[in-house]
Each structure stands twice: as structure tokens, then as C-alpha cells.
Simulated assay, not measured.
Amino acid sequence: MTDWGCEKAKAELEEYLHNELLTEDATDIAEHLANCGDCDGERRVGLVLTQAVQRACKEIAPEDLRDQVMTRIREMQAH
């Protein structure tokens, strides 16, 4: 394992949180995070934001709002 250092770990943090890295790279970042409080803090913030976005994406707009938006889109497409 190679300690990536803070700059590289933070640059790859989003991919790490989304499990988009090769296993070896993910292992290296996990090792760095375990030994670096600053980067682990960044990981925790990123995790909270990722979870908030995932929850927001599951929400459905009220039907009347959806109807208004679709009506406006159709009006714009007609012009």
C-alpha cells in the first residue's frame, strides 16, 4: 500500500465515496483516511452530502407542480 497523501486522496474522494475506484486505489485511500483526521473529516462531509443528494433524488414533486412544469415546457417547445 502507498500513502497517497492528502492532495490525491481528496481529489479522488468523490469516486471513493461512490465506489468508482479500482480496489487497490480504494484500499490506499481507505488506509490514508484511517491515518489522516483532516481527510477523514472531508470524507464524513462528503458522505453526508452524498446521502442528502440521494434522499433528495427519491423525492417526488407534488402533482400540481409537475403539471405546471410540463405545461411550461410544452409552451416553450411550441415556440
Score class of each variant (00 low, 15 high):
D64R: 10
E20A: 15
R55C: 03
G46W: 01
D3Y: 10
I73W: 01
H79N: 15
K8F: 02
C57V: 08
D67V: 15
Q77K: 05
M70R: 14
R66C: 15
E7M: 14
K8C: 01
K58Y: 01
V69T: 10
K58F: 00
E59H: 03
H32G: 07
Q51N: 09
L65S: 08
L65C: 08
V53S: 02
K10Q: 13
T2V: 14
E59A: 04
L47C: 01
L21V: 03
D28S: 09
A52Q: 03
L65V: 14
M76G: 03
E59K: 05
G5E: 12
D3K: 08
V69S: 01
V53T: 05
C39G: 02
R74F: 10
G41K: 01
Q54K: 07
G41R: 06
C39F: 07
A52V: 05
C36N: 10
A9L: 06
E75C: 07
G5Y: 13
D3V: 09
D40C: 12
E12R: 05
K10N: 14
E63D: 12
G37K: 10
D3H: 09
L33F: 05
R66V: 15
D40W: 11
V69I: 14
T2N: 11
L49V: 07
D67I: 15
G46N: 02
L65Q: 11
M70L: 15
L22E: 08
G5C: 12
A11R: 07
T27N: 08
G41C: 02
T71D: 11
G37F: 04
W4N: 04
V69A: 09
E63Y: 02
D64N: 10
N35E: 15
R43W: 03
L65F: 13
E12K: 02
K58P: 00
Q51Y: 00
G5A: 14
